[in-house]
């Protein structure tokens, strides 16, 4: 038997894994009874349901092809956009808002295929300054600004 739609088949399996994982994790929480539900009751119910839905999606992919294809992964935007956000998350506590913004902007601005290299530093410096003015001085967010 061949799989008609690989993308859906794999997605279904992933959902089975997530649902099964939830079911597995919910073992640690008291189930209780339908009368007096414990913290594990609803999660176990949902985990089981998700696993069943995943099985259904995978089985369906064996016969039915809706024509959707995963296509190639665009690594450049994926890595650089997520990298920009993650670097902000990591740098904020250490370097403060000013430098974390600069870093995140520089990394993420390179994610697009039509980068104009002279624009990146201008954009990063300008937006970092703008966000300092608006969020820290304007809205008064309690946030660390400089490394010290």
């Amino acid at each position: 038997m061949s799989i008609r739609n690989t993308s859906d088949f794999v997605s279904g399996l992933a959902l089975v894994a997530v649902g099964g994982g939830a079911l597995f994790a919910a073992r640690d929480y008291a189930m209780g009874t339908a009368f007096r539900m414990g913290p594990g009751y609803f999660p176990a119910l949902l985990g089981g349901l998700l696993a069943l839905l995943g099985i259904a999606i995978s089985l369906r992919a064996l016969w039915i092809d809706e024509g959707n294809r995963m296509g190639g992964v665009a690594w450049r935007p994926l890595v650089l956009v997520l990298g920009g956000v993650l670097s902000f998350s990591v740098a904020l506590g250490v370097l403060g808002l000013a430098l974390a913004s600069l870093l995140a902007l520089t990394v993420s601005a390179l994610a697009t295929h039509d980068v104009r290299h002279w624009e990146v530093p201008v954009l990063s410096l300008g937006l970092s300054g703008f966000s300092l003015v608006v969020f820290v001085y304007g809205l008064g967010l309690p946030i660390k600004i400089w490394p010290v």
Binding site: G84, V85, S108, T112, S124, L127, L141, I143
Partner: peptide, 27 residues
């Protein structure tokens, strides 16, 4: 868009952080 999306990303990062002052939330 090449100028817009870094701005959106930065505002999103700051916005997410400021909800509960958590850098973990940004990650």
């Amino acid at each position: 868009y090449r100028l817009l999306y870094p701005a959106i990303l930065l505002f999103a990062c700051i916005g997410i952080y400021s909800v509960s002052n958590s850098a973990f939330d940004v990650g």
